[in-house]
Write a protein that binds this DNA or RNA. Structure first.
Lengths: 152, 152
DNA sequence: TTTAAATAATACCTGGAGGTGTCATTTATG
DNA sequence: CATAAATGACACCTCCAGGTATTATTTAAA
């Protein structure tokens, strides 16, 4: 149910990257990120490792380690992020889920839906972390504004 | 993973209604629908019951029974269908999944994403079964064009 | 050199969407 | 009335995304 466009995992990846974009030079520990985004801690840790393997961020091990965005904010689009998180099928999906839609007879929704898909794609492709940072209306969970939640 | 907009169940509901719209007066048996759409038979049966309880279709029991669309094709929008299938959260969902996005600080993607959500909503609201029928490029699986698949 | 604070690896757990199996009920028709 | 062809009800199974648990490794700094 529920009309999701992104999987929870992708949503997390987007949040994380958006958050880390606030200061692209800073080394954020998983704990820093947890304190601000409240993504389930162990799952967050797992995702950070995946993100770092993907090359979008680099990880520094050991004490005072953490993660840092690996390239210029203007070089990272939201689509890049959704891709490393595994969501990348929007482009060739039929509204009705018919396999043959694209190359045989097109389904009744083909053109209308193609426009929707295109608009999603445009937004994801054209929006970079740079732009998100500039937009500046950040909406993270602040450390102090919340009821305490146990980490483990 | 995979960027889905509709759940499989909703996708099935859309296919089924689209198919039944071809002849709005006809009583289709679950078998008819299965032969054309190849939705897993027992799951299809279950969905048909749900659809008929929702009021979008009516069911006729007994021999020669089946299902028929319950009202004028022009009165059934795709949004109506997605709703009965349980997918109805698109309207108030934040890009990043932040609960507070709408009524507190708006997230950095708020306006861009609102446009996307609106375009999806527009398509689903404005497209009726009537229109799909007129579009006429139907893409069902024909009985003869397929390798035989066991029903049970 | 020891310790503590960080990430990495890996295996396991869990809920729910999607899918099956079985039996009960309804009804047209011979 | 008996039968066959349809839907209805309901319990069960399975897989995997999302989430946990545990142990290993790396490294700054006391």
């Amino acid at each position: 149910m529920s009309f999701m466009i992104f999987s929870k995992t992708t949503e997390y990846a987007l949040r994380i990257m958006n958050f880390m974009a606030m200061d692209e030079k800073k080394l954020y520990s998983a704990n820093d990120i947890y304190e601000n985004l409240r993504i389930p801690f162990r799952y967050l840790r797992k995702q950070m490792t995946i993100l770092s393997k993907s090359g979008l961020i680099i990880s520094v091990q050991g004490k005072n380690g953490g993660y840092r965005i690996s390239k210029s904010l203007s070089e990272i689009s939201l689509l890049d992020i959704t891709r490393v998180a595994g969501d990348n099928k929007i482009n060739n999906e039929c509204f009705f889920g018919f396999k043959s839609c694209a190359f045989e007879k097109k389904c009744a929704m083909h053109y209308k839906w193609a426009a929707v898909r295109k608009s999603i794609n445009n937004v994801l492709t054209s929006t970079t972390l740079e732009e998100l940072k500039k937009t500046g209306t950040h909406n993270f969970i602040s450390k102090n504004s919340l009821i305490f939640t146990k980490k483990d």
